[in-house]
Design a binder for these strands. Sequence first.
DNA 1: ATGTCATTGCATCAATGA
Length: 260
Amino acid sequence: MNIATWNVNSLKIRFNQVLDFLVKNNIDILCLQETKLIDDNFPHEEFNRLGYQSYCYGQKTYNGVAIISKYKAIEVSYGIKNYIDEQKRVISITVNVNNFDLRIICIYCPNGQSLESDKFRYKMEWFYHLNTFIYNELENHKNLILLGDYNIAPSDDDVYDTNIWQNTILVSKDERTAFTNLINLGLNDLFNKFDQPKKSFTWWDYRNYSFLKNNGLRIDHILASNSVQSVCESFNIDIEMRKKERPSDHAPVSIRIKTI
DNA sequence: ATGTCATTGCATCAATGA
């Protein structure tokens, strides 16, 4: 079973690339971020035609998340439970595959802009509520995967230049603590389960030929509970999609898990 | 490297967010 996450930076613009990615990689479940589509405009029929169900939680202009799945969801939930947030950043589904209940949570974490900004305070508040939410989700779902754009590079290995990326947004101590706090709930960063090339990144700024120079950050992550980690067979960052014409600034990240 | 890209509103570009 192949499960992926991708910040597409507008599903409208990236639609054909998404279809291509799904088919070429035989993706079973894809989590999307920054769809930038209201739910009325979501292309459910087109995904249907390829054999996928789709679940969306979007808004105009900004944010927006969705899950595309070959398996029909037995449960769908929107947002972070008990946290009122106008920004559409979280959607979760449960699927049942061969009597294996799998909880998939797709997240688009706030960027935070700069450490002094109101947006940073919102980011920290948001992660606090996400943590409580995931704690509760883990109580109810043993097999859980949390995928998406975290807007946090967890360690200095996850940035191309530690001189530039030091005590700034995406790498600050507080943000890294928020990431560690999620791990401490009983999750594993599946990137670390396998040997990875040095300088593996998932996002490159559109500016300054960043991708050409591999000036990137690893901010898109797949975290999984122990039971899911134990059946995970591979982890891949698909940088080919970042090489396409008119690409997203993020590359898709995917895993393969043994279906029980 | 604040030298790109996507969206919106009312415009044939500026403002905003990432």
